[in-house]
């Protein structure tokens, strides 16, 4: 095995220099002069174009805008879609429990990383570290408080995204936040529910990942 390594590297090092270009113009990715409102609008358009559902809301304590609190939107949506067992991200479990205590017809809040349980719940609720306006993508950053499977194996995925966390492009999100020096085990960009067009190029939503993606867009910018 170490022979293979040495042999491959030796062959590559023996090759003459080839074409290269020392400098690149990144402005095609860099130059975006979008206001935050532009970004919110674009995010919604792009996310909805791939069948994500985007609902505007606010944090429960925020009374500055005439928008519903995210927990009430969540409760309504779960009721409308028959979500009875909702797996949630750890940081959201306690607040949600507190908000929902005493209210009737709320789904069961399940805090777990157990594989078989996650395969059996109706929906998974996660946070999003940020969003990408240009493509309508969520930036998920699973880790100690949020299992990777939470956004993947339940048939529905619901994500909380703050408008203040939108970035124009992936390049901006990555470079402005110094991802390269702090990559966790897993970062996932999610753009819409799972889909395929492998059969006759017919677009079908819901293959192996969630069939439904609901983005609770918390207006805090």
């Amino acid at each position: 095995m170490s022979d293979a390594r040495a042999n491959i590297l030796r062959r590559l090092r023996a090759a003459p220099a080839g074409l290269t270009q020392p400098y690149s113009d990144w402005s095609v990715l860099r130059d975006r002069d979008w206001s935050i409102d532009d970004q919110v609008g674009l995010f919604r358009t792009m996310a909805e174009s791939v069948n994500a559902r985007v609902i505007d809301c606010v944090a429960p304590e925020d009374a500055s805008r005439p928008l519903p609190s995210w927990d009430s939107v969540l409760a309504e949506d779960c009721a409308a879609r028959g979500v009875r067992r909702l797996a949630v991200s750890a940081p959201l479990a306690a607040p949600l429990q507190a908000l929902w205590t005493g209210s009737p017809n709320r789904p069961e809040i399940i805090l777990t990383a157990d594989r078989d349980t996650l395969f059996s719940v109706d929906a998974g609720l996660t946070t999003a570290r940020g969003g990408i306006a240009e493509t309508g993508s969520l930036i998920l950053w699973p880790g100690p408080t949020e299992p990777r499977m939470l956004s993947l194996v339940p048939p529905r995925h619901i994500a909380l995204l703050r408008t203040s966390r939108l970035h124009p492009t992936l390049w901006h999100a990555m470079t402005e936040n110094g991802w390269a020096s702090q990559m966790p085990t897993n970062v996932v960009l999610v753009t819409g529910p799972s889909k395929t067009s492998d059969i006759e190029q017919t677009l079908v939503f819901g293959v192996h990942g969630p069939k439904d993606l609901l983005i609770l867009l918390i207006n805090d910018h």
């Binding site: 990383a113 100690p144 990777r148 992936l170 966790p184 085990t185 897993n186 999610v190 753009t191 990942g209």
Partner: peptide
């Protein structure tokens, strides 16, 4: 490839589960 601005998933893997990671 498919005329999409981005695919549904872009998965960046930088290792097996470590520390307090809950799965992977």
């Amino acid at each position: 490839a498919t005329g999409q601005p981005i695919t549904t998933y872009v998965n960046m893997i930088s290792g097996p589960r470590r520390g307090a990671d809950q799965d992977g």
